[in-house]
Design a binder for these strands. Structure first.
Lengths: 198, 198, 198, 198
DNA sequence: GATGAATGAGATTTCATTCAT
DNA sequence: AATGAATGAAATCTCATTCAT
C-alpha cells in the first residue's frame, strides 16, 4: 500500500515532468497526449487518472511551479534588507531558474504567461508583479529609488527585461553558459537599479 | 482591369485584416480558417487563393508588418541625433503602434514571438535587437552611455521592458488610455536611459 | 470569323490533347482541371465552354478516338480476306496505335476500359469484342478455326492478350522500341492464330 | 487477453473486408473512408488505428492477397509435372479466385492494376509474370512448347487473356455461373496451350 | 470567346477523451 | 491502477464548377 502510493506519486510526477519536456519542445498545441505518455513511459489513458485533461496538465505545471517561485519572491520581500538588494534577489531567482530547469522556464514563458487557456491564472502571475511593485515602492519610501516613477509600470518594465532574457535563452538566441547567465544577471540588475535609483 | 486589381487587393487585405482580428481574439490555434473567412466576408476557399495555408497567413501578417516596423527603426537609427534620442524614438514607435492597431500588436506579441511555425522568422525579429544594440553602442562610443554594459544584453532587456508593457495592455492588465500610453512611454524611456547613462 | 472558328477548333483540340497527356501522366483522379488548362495554355474556365465537366472531357476523348478505332476494325472485317488475316489486321491496328500515340492508349487502357465513370461507354467497348467474335465465327465457318471453341470467350481472351501487352508498355514493363513492337505483334498474333486454328 | 487479441484481429480483418467490398462497388476514389468504417461497423477513426491512410488500406489489400496468389503459383511451379499442366494449374487458380471472392478480384483488377499509388507494387505483380515465363521456358526446354516464341511476351499475352475474362465478369459482360467459369477455364487454357505447343 | 477570382461541398485525417477489460 | 482499442467532433485543405467582367 505504501509502495502503491509511492509508485502512484512517482507516476504522476513522471507524467508532469514528461509534459514539461514535451510542451517545451513542441509547444502546448504541438504536444500530443500520447507523446507525453510515451515520454513518461505510461499508457496515455493513465494520464486521465491523474489529470482531468491535457489542459489540466498545463495548469498543474503552472500552479505547482509558480507557487514555488512566488514563495521565494515572498521570502525575499520579507527579508530585512534594503529594497535594491531585494530586487536583486528577485532577479537572481528568476534568471537562475533557467539553468536549473530550462524546459520548465520555456513552458512558463512560452505557453503559460501569454496563453489563452490559462486566463484564470493571469491573476496568479499578477502576484509576482505586485511583489516587485511593493519592493519598488518600499525603495521609493526609503529614498533609494526615485519617487517620480510609476511603481506599477516600473515593475512591468523590470519584469519584462528579465523575461526577455529568458526568452533569448529559450529561443537559443542568447548564449547561456554559466558565465553568460552571470553576466546577464549583472547587466539586467545594474540597468534596472541604476534606472530606478534616486 | 484596374478595378479588378483593386478589388483583388481589397480581398487579400480584408482577409489579412480579418485574420489579425481573429488571431488576436482566439489565438492562432483557436482561430478557425472559417472564422477568418467569415469575418472577412468571403468564402473560406478564397483564403487558399491568396495564401498557401493558415500558417502562411500568420507568416504574412508578421512579415508585412514587421517590415514596416523595422523600416521605421532604421530611419530613426539613420537620423542625425544623439543616441539617447534615437532610443527614445524607437520606444515611441513600438509603444504607439499599440494605439494604432491593438489587434496587430496582440498577434505579434502573443502568436509570433513564441510560435514554433515562425522560427524561420526569428532572424527577422533579431534585426530589431541588432538595431537597438547598435544605437546603444553608438551611445557608448559617444560617451552618453556606460561602456561597461554589454550592449547586446542591454538591447534585450530594453526591448523586453517595452514588450512587457505591450503585453500588459494586451492582457488588459495595464490601463491604456491615451494618457496612460504617454505615461508608460515616459516611464519606460526614463528607466532605460537612466539605466544606461554614464 | 473563319479565323475565329479555326481558332475555336484549335482551342478545343488543344484542350483535348492536353487532357490526354495529363490523364495519362496523373490518371483521371490525379489530374486537375487546372493542370489540363495549363498544359493547353488556356484559362481553366474556358474548358467549361467546350465541355460540360471534367468527366465529359474523358468521355469525349473516348468517344472520338474509339470511333476511329472501331471504324478501322470494321473496314478490316469488311475486307475480302480469310479470317486469320483479318484477326491479324485487328491486332496490328491495336498494337500500332501505341507507337502513334502512347498517351492516348494509356488513357484508353487505364482510365476508360475499366472506369466507373464511363459505364455508359461499356456498350461501345463491347462493339470491338463483337467484331472480333464475328471474325472468329467466320473463321470457324470457313474451317480455318476450331469449331469447339466458344467464339465469344475466345474474343475476350484474344483482346485481353493484346491489351496486356499495351499495359506492359504503359507501365514501362515491356520494351517498346520499333523492333520490340514488331516482335510483340508477331508473338501475339502467332499465339492467337495457332491457338485458334483447326 | 486472448479474447482481446482475437477481437483486435477481428476488427482489422473486418475493416479490410469492408474496404474490399466498398472499393469494389465504388472504386477507390469513389469510396469514402466513412463508407468503409460504416460497412465494417466501426468508427472511422479506428481505421487509422490499424492503417496509416486510406491508401495504406488498398496497399494492404493488395499485398496480403497477392502474396497468397503468388504462393500458390509458386507451389504449382515447384510441382513435378509437365509445363502445360503447370500452366493449366496457374490459370485455374487465377480464374477460380473469382468464384471465391468476386469483390477482391474486382479490386485487384480495377484498382490495383492501374493505380498510381501502387506503382511501387508493380514489382510484385511482375513476379507473377516471371513465374509464368519460367514455366513457359521450362516447356520450351522440354520440347512441349515452341522455341521460337518469346517466353516473356507470351507470359504477358497468356496472363492478359485470363485477366480479361476476369474483367468481363467484373463488368458483368460475361456470364459467370459455375458452368460458365468452367467453360472459360477450358477455353482459355485450350487456346493458350495450343498456341504455345510445338 | 476568354479569364481567373470566387464559391462551397466534401473528404481525409488528427487526436483528446472514454471505457471495457 | 493501468492499458490501449475505440470513438467521433472538428479542422484544414482541395478542387470542380460558376460567373462577373
Amino acid at each position: 500500500m505504501t509502495d502503491g502510493s509511492i509508485a502512484q506519486e512517482d507516476r504522476r510526477k513522471r507524467i508532469l515532468d514528461a509534459a514539461i519536456r514535451v510542451f517545451a519542445e513542441h509547444g502546448y498545441h504541438g504536444a500530443r497526449v500520447g507523446d507525453i505518455a510515451e515520454d513518461a513511459g505510461v499508457a496515455h489513458g493513465l494520464l486521465y487518472h491523474y489529470f482531468a485533461s491535457k489542459d489540466d496538465v498545463l495548469r498543474t505545471i503552472f500552479v505547482e511551479n509558480w507557487g514555488h517561485l512566488i514563495a521565494r519572491f515572498r521570502s525575499v520581500e520579507a527579508a530585512v534588507e534594503p529594497a535594491p538588494k531585494k530586487l536583486e534577489g528577485i532577479a537572481k531567482i528568476l534568471l537562475r531558474t533557467w539553468r536549473n530547469d530550462p524546459a520548465l522556464v520555456t513552458v512558463m514563458v512560452r505557453e503559460v504567461a501569454r496563453s489563452q487557456q490559462l486566463q484564470a491564472q493571469v491573476e496568479d502571475v499578477r502576484e509576482a508583479f505586485v511583489i516587485v511593485q511593493r519592493v519598488i515602492e518600499e525603495g521609493q519610501a526609503s529614498g533609494a529609488f526615485r519617487k517620480e516613477l510609476d511603481a506599477r509600470l516600473a515593475s512591468w518594465v523590470f519584469y519584462g527585461g528579465l523575461e526577455e532574457v529568458l526568452t533569448g535563452w529559450v529561443l537559443g538566441q542568447l548564449p547561456d553558459s554559466e558565465e553568460d547567465v552571470a553576466r546577464a544577471e549583472r547587466t539586467a540588475i545594474d540597468l534596472a537599479l541604476r534606472g530606478l535609483s534616486a
